Computed example of a mutant assay.
Amino acid sequence: MKKILLTTFLLSGLLVTAACGNNNTKEAEKTAETTETTEKETVVEKEEVVEEIPTIVGVAAGNENFTTLVAAVKAAELVETLNGDGPFTVFAPVNEAFDKLPEGTVEGLLKPESKETLTAILTYHVVAGKVMAADVVKAIKEGDGSFTITTVQGATLTASLDGENVILTDAKGGTSTIIMTDVAASNGVIHAIDTVVMP
Score class of each variant (00 low, 15 high):
63 N>K: 07
123 T>K: 02
114 S>V: 09
145 G>Q: 05
105 T>M: 01
54 P>Y: 08
180 M>F: 15
75 A>D: 07
147 F>V: 13
78 L>G: 02
85 D>Y: 13
97 A>H: 00
47 E>I: 13
88 F>M: 08
186 S>Y: 12
111 K>C: 11
22 N>I: 12
136 V>F: 08
109 L>S: 04
189 V>A: 06
167 I>W: 07
96 E>H: 03
92 A>P: 00
113 E>P: 05
143 G>D: 14
115 K>S: 04
195 T>A: 11
186 S>A: 13
189 V>G: 01
1 M>D: 08
61 A>H: 06
12 S>E: 08
27 E>T: 11
107 E>V: 03
192 A>G: 04
168 L>Y: 07
13 G>W: 06
194 D>K: 04
8 T>R: 12
19 A>C: 10
119 T>R: 05
94 V>Y: 03
100 K>G: 01
97 A>F: 00
18 A>I: 08
49 V>H: 09
113 E>I: 04
185 A>S: 12
182 D>I: 13
173 G>W: 14
152 V>T: 10
139 A>R: 04
83 N>T: 10
112 P>K: 06
178 I>C: 07
45 E>F: 14
87 P>C: 09
85 D>M: 12
151 T>N: 01
190 I>P: 02
132 M>G: 05
194 D>L: 04
158 T>R: 06
7 T>Y: 08
19 A>L: 12
193 I>E: 00
113 E>W: 06
193 I>D: 00
138 K>A: 15
137 V>Y: 06
64 E>G: 10
99 D>H: 13
192 A>W: 01
50 V>M: 09
191 H>G: 02
46 K>E: 13
28 A>P: 03
1 M>Q: 11
94 V>K: 05
28 A>M: 09
125 H>K: 05
143 G>S: 13
179 I>E: 06
1 M>R: 11
181 T>N: 14
88 F>H: 05
125 H>V: 03
148 T>Q: 13
104 G>K: 02
79 V>K: 13
112 P>Q: 11
96 E>L: 06
48 E>I: 14
53 I>C: 14
84 G>M: 09
55 T>F: 02
133 A>P: 03
188 G>R: 01
75 A>C: 07
157 L>M: 09
66 F>S: 01
181 T>Y: 12
175 T>W: 10
96 E>C: 05
192 A>H: 01
123 T>P: 08
56 I>N: 00
6 L>C: 07
57 V>D: 00
54 P>K: 09
44 V>N: 10
100 K>R: 10
105 T>I: 02
63 N>M: 14
149 I>H: 02
194 D>G: 04
165 N>H: 12
68 T>M: 06
59 V>M: 11
18 A>L: 12
150 T>H: 09
27 E>Q: 12
90 V>S: 05
151 T>A: 01
77 E>Y: 10
136 V>N: 02
21 G>M: 08
130 K>V: 13
85 D>W: 13
188 G>P: 01
9 F>D: 04
199 P>T: 10
109 L>P: 00
70 V>R: 02
